[in-house]
Design a protein around this nucleic acid. Structure first.
Length: 271
DNA sequence: AAAAGCCCCTGGATGC
DNA sequence: TGCATCCAGGGGCTTT
């Protein structure tokens, strides 16, 4: 369940260690969600110029092309100075002159994809339809509200869809709606401009706090240095069904929306 | 164009 | 103790 905060925490945990490194070799394990899109040999000798994040994707900029990394829902990256023996769920090792970047992903919903450039079809297929970044200046309230107005489905599902805003997954959608005092079942197009603004701010605040806490570690997420996140300790609703709301004491409820669980407080999120 | 459902995968929890 | 079943869910894809 890596969402924006977990992906950003991961990025920060290894960017300084890998920048400037040259790729020595690449080992792929079992098939991931998508094929690499190039031969491993063709990556040898390339230099890592930087690591960026777009939504839940990490972009490793190379001196020629880039690697798109997605953690899926069970993926995590590790950066090791010495080469560790690969385990059963280590499906991609990028050996560099400064260490080994490893993707560990038991469920293999993750992916490592090569693209010749950000505008290349391989990259555009994954990045082309992504909405605005919530923590950047380009996240525009008017545009956010306009997108909500077009959607007749529950607001929770719009937050997950990735066109109004990127990086919000199942945990932070529930948390942001709690913070905004909005019931997850409300039709997105029914939200007033004022309530859209409250939600817009709530999304930014929740994600910002989560990034500061290093993300959430519910099962086994850790950043590239093996450090876990701590935001789950302050989750108000996620995974708290049947427990009292931290604000009003009402029992947190669990419902299903689009085959996913949603948590909310019936009292704090009346409509 | 929007919406709903499918499907990829495996570890962990639950039930008998 | 063991086996079957269910659930977790990101997100592209297909179908309605």
């Amino acid at each position: 369940m890596p969402e924006l905060p977990e992906v950003e925490a991961t990025r920060r945990s290894f960017v300084d260690q890998i920048v400037g490194a040259h790729i020595v070799s690449v080992r792929m394990g079992k098939p991931l969600r998508w094929p690499l899109g190039c031969s491993v040999e063709s990556l040898v000798g390339r230099r890592v110029l930087g690591v960026r994040r777009r939504g839940k994707y990490l972009l490793l900029d190379l001196d020629q092309g880039l690697l798109l990394v997605h953690l899926g829902m069970s993926g995590s990256l590790g950066f090791f100075k010495a080469q560790p023996h690969p385990g059963a769920h280590d499906h991609c090792d990028v050996h560099t002159t400064q260490g080994v970047l490893r993707l560990h992903d038991p469920r293999r919903f993750g992916a490592v994809v090569y693209a010749a450039g950000e505008a290349a079809p391989a990259a555009q297929k994954l990045l082309g339809k992504l909405g605005p970044e919530p923590l950047e200046a380009g996240f525009d309230l008017a545009r956010f509200h306009a997108t909500l107005c077009q959607r007749r489905v529950p607001i929770k599902q719009v937050l997950l869809a990735g066109d109004a805003v990127v990086g919000v997954g199942n945990i932070y959608a529930s948390e942001a709606l709690f913070r905004a005092g909005i019931r997850p079942t409300v039709k997105a197009s029914n939200l007033s401009r004022r309530r859209a603004e409250v939600l817009y701010q709530a999304v930014r605040e929740v994600l910002t706090q989560a990034v500061e806490k290093g993300g959430s570690t519910l099962r086994n997420f850790s950043n590239a240095n093996g450090e876990v996140g701590h935001f789950q300790m302050q989750a108000n609703v996620y995974a708290r069904a049947g427990q009292p709301c931290r604000v009003c004491g009402t029992l947190i409820r669990l419902i299903r929306q689009g085959q996913r669980s949603t948590f909310f407080c019936p009292h704090c999120q009346k409509s």
